[in-house]
């Protein structure tokens, strides 16, 4: 078989994808069919792990992960759209500085930032300690509760919603905005009829990106939630470490990938990016 010039050039990438992406994925999928608590690829394939999951209580963790992710994405959308709109249309020369401020925290490890929040929110910590000593206010800490987990997720994934949205909004041509206004639309109508729909590609990408990241979140629940809530990622970790049941962990991972994959595909079918971009 002779390869074209392009085909030959693609060989390194294809090899890299096989070794770095396809192989581990296939390994995980294969492992999910191995007998429980085995540590080799050589066992007789079985559906026992999946049976265990569907008979057990893992679905609770699945539901927690899903609802945490959906809540975080919804809140992120509400928080980020106005900010992104401001960055593109309002803040002018300050937009660069603000973008930088939103980016810099990404250079610090997520765990360190979360522990920063712990210090900030903990009883007698930065926030409550200051309120107490300066104003004599005694408040309950929200640390180790559901709101703290969601706060952490919104905080950590904010750039991943903000920047695609910024891109989406900056893609709205100025003249279409002017034209809508010229045709009698009020500011709100311009937004509703033109700006929002035309910025949807960025919004959808932000939704998908943060959803996929948030459903795989684990540190927020552990550090800020004090393990009050166990997300599915935590279950997977336990299976691989504490309970030494790799095939079960692999099966949970495969199910998680399936759930996320199906949801993302459904979303992409509903919000066809090409339609938004007007290519179809």
């Amino acid at each position: 078989m002779r390869l074209s010039q392009g085909g030959k050039s693609a060989i390194p990438v294809v090899l890299f994808l096989i070794v770095g992406f396809a192989a581990p994925l296939l390994a995980v999928i294969w492992f999910s069919f191995m007998p429980p608590r085995s540590f080799s690829f050589g066992g007789a394939p079985t559906l026992e792990n999946y049976a265990t999951i569907f008979q057990g209580t893992n679905y609770i963790s699945f539901l927690w992960s899903l609802s945490l992710a959906v809540t975080a994405v919804a809140l992120l959308a509400l928080v980020c759209y106005p900010v992104a709109y401001g960055l593109v249309r309002v803040f002018g020369k300050w937009a660069m500085l603000l973008t930088l401020l939103f980016t810099i925290p990404l250079f610090v490890s997520e765990n360190i930032r979360l522990y920063g929040w712990v210090l900030f929110l903990i009883k007698n910590g930065v926030l409550l300690g200051t309120l107490k000593s300066m104003f004599g206010l005694q408040l309950e800490s929200i640390l180790f509760s559901l709101p703290a987990i969601i706060l952490g997720m919104v905080y950590v994934y904010l750039p991943f919603m903000l920047f695609p949205m910024t891109l989406g909004i900056s893609m709205v041509p100025n003249e279409t905005r002017d034209a809508a206004f010229d045709l009698g639309a009020s500011r709100w109508q311009v937004f509703k009829e033109v700006e929002l729909p035309l910025s949807m590609p960025g919004v959808v990408i932000g939704f998908l990106l943060t959803f996929v990241l948030a459903i795989g979140a684990i540190a927020e629940a552990k550090v800020l939630g004090g393990q009050r809530v166990i997300p599915i990622t935590h279950d997977i970790e336990i299976a691989f470490t504490y309970s030494q049941n790799w095939p079960l962990g692999a099966a949970l991972s495969v199910l998680l990938m399936l759930v996320v994959g199906v949801l993302v595909l459904l979303a992409l079918r509903r919000f066809d990016l090409d339609t938004f971009l007007g290519r179809r």
Binding site: P173, E175, T176, A179, V194, L198, F276, L277, G278
Partner: peptide
């Protein structure tokens, strides 16, 4: 106004 780019709504 009819714009140079026409400014039609692509969606």
């Amino acid at each position: 106004m009819v714009f140079q780019s026409l400014a039609l709504f692509p969606h």
